[in-house]
C-alpha cells in the first residue's frame, strides 16, 4: 500500500521544499520506494534543492498533456536508487494542471512507489488544490512566527474541509536561544494554538543553507536538523521516536568553546 503525503504551509518560505527533499531522501534511505512531485508549476525549486536540475528533460505538465510517458519524465536520483523526482514546469502556470489530472498522475505512480510526496506551492489557490487533491496525509510546515502560524491554521481548516483527516505538524526553524529567553514561541505554544499532532521539530541550522547550496539533502547527517528530519521519517513509518533535545547546543562544553571563540 502506498501513501500519498502533501507537504504544505500556506505561507511561503517556511521550508516546504527543504522538508520535502529531506523527508523524501530520508524515506529512501530507509529502503522505501519514494517519488517526489514538485507541484509548484511556474516556480520550480525542488529540483535545485535536490541537486537534480541538470537532468530535467520532461516535466509534470508534459506527463499530464501526454507529451511523454511517465518514465521519461521521472528523474532517478543516482545517490539513492529508490528515489525519483517528477519536476514541475517552469514556463507554465498553475492552471496547466487540474486536480483530476493530478489524481490520475498519482494513481499511476502508486503502482510502483511506497511513498508519493507532493511539494505544495504557497497560497490557497489552484496550485494548493492540485497538490492536496490526491493526498492521504498532510504535513503542515510552519515556523514559530505569527504570520506562518496564522496561515498554517487556515491551511489546516482547508485540509479539514477537503476531508483530509491525517494532518500533522512540523515546526521548522526553531531557535532555541530565542525560545529560552522568551523571544520566540516554543513547540508547546505552537501545538497548543494549532491543535494538531506534532510529527517533528526542526531547529534553525546553518547546515540547511549549506546543504541547499550543494544540492544535497542533509537528512541523516550528524547535525541537529539532519537528525530531526531522520526522526520525522521514522515517525511517518509509524515508529515511536522521542523528540530531540534541541537544547543540546547550550551544554557546558559548548559554553567553554564559545568562550575560546571569543578570545
Amino acid at each position: 500500500m502506498s501513501e500519498v503525503i502533501v507537504i504544505t504551509s500556506g505561507k511561503g518560505g517556511v521550508g516546504k521544499t527543504t522538508t520535502t527533499a529531506n523527508v523524501g531522501t530520508g524515506l529512501a534511505q530507509l529502503n522505501k520506494k519514494v517519488v517526489l512531485i514538485d507541484t509548484d508549476i511556474g516556480l520550480r525549486n525542488l529540483d535545485v534543492v535536490m541537486g537534480l536540475e541538470n537532468r530535467i528533460v520532461y516535466n509534470l505538465v508534459d506527463v499530464v498533456e501526454g507529451n511523454c510517458r511517465m518514465k521519461q519524465a521521472l528523474i532517478k536520483d543516482k545517490r539513492y536508487p529508490n528515489l525519483s523526482l517528477l519536476p514541475s514546469a517552469q514556463t507554465r502556470d498553475k492552471t496547466a494542471v487540474s486536480p483530476e489530472q493530478m489524481i490520475k498522475v498519482i494513481e499511476e505512480l502508486k503502482e510502483e512507489y511506497d511513498y508519493i510526496l507532493l511539494d505544495c506551492p504557497a497560497g490557497i489557490e489552484q496550485g494548493f488544490k492540485n497538490a492536496i487533491a490526491g493526498a492521504d496525509r498532510a504535513l503542515v510546515v510552519t515556523t514559530p512566527e505569527v504570520s506562518a502560524i496564522r496561515d498554517a491554521d487556515r491551511i489546516i481548516g482547508l485540509l479539514g474541509a477537503n476531508e483530509l483527516k491525517k494532518v500533522e505538524l512540523i515546526v521548522n526553524r526553531l531557535r532555541m536561544d530565542m525560545v529560552k529567553r522568551g523571544d520566540m514561541m516554543n513547540i508547546n505554544d505552537v501545538t497548543d494554538i494549532l491543535a494538531i499532532d506534532l510529527i517533528g521539530a526542526v531547529p534553525d541550522d546553518e547546515q540547511i543553507v549549506i546543504s541547499t547550496n550543494q544540492g544535497e539533502p542533509l537528512v541523516g547527517s550528524d547535525c541537529l536538523a539532519g537528525k530531526a528530519f531522520e526522526n520525522i521519517c521514522h515517525r511517518i513509518l509509524g515508529e515511536d521516536v522521542p523528540f530531540l533535545d534541541l537544547e543540546i547546543k547550550t551544554s557546558i562544553w559548548d559554553k567553554i568553546k564559545e568562550i575560546f571563540k571569543k578570545n
Binding site: E145, I149, R150, R181, G182, D183, M184, M185, D189, I193
Partner: peptide, 19 residues
C-alpha cells in the same frame, strides 16, 4: 512581557476571528 508571549496572545485572538 516576553515577545514570545505577546505573539502567542495576539495569535490566539486573531485565530478566533479567523476561525
Amino acid at each position: 512581557k516576553n515577545s514570545g508571549d505577546i505573539a502567542k496572545d495576539r495569535l490566539k485572538l486573531v485565530l478566533i476571528s479567523d476561525r
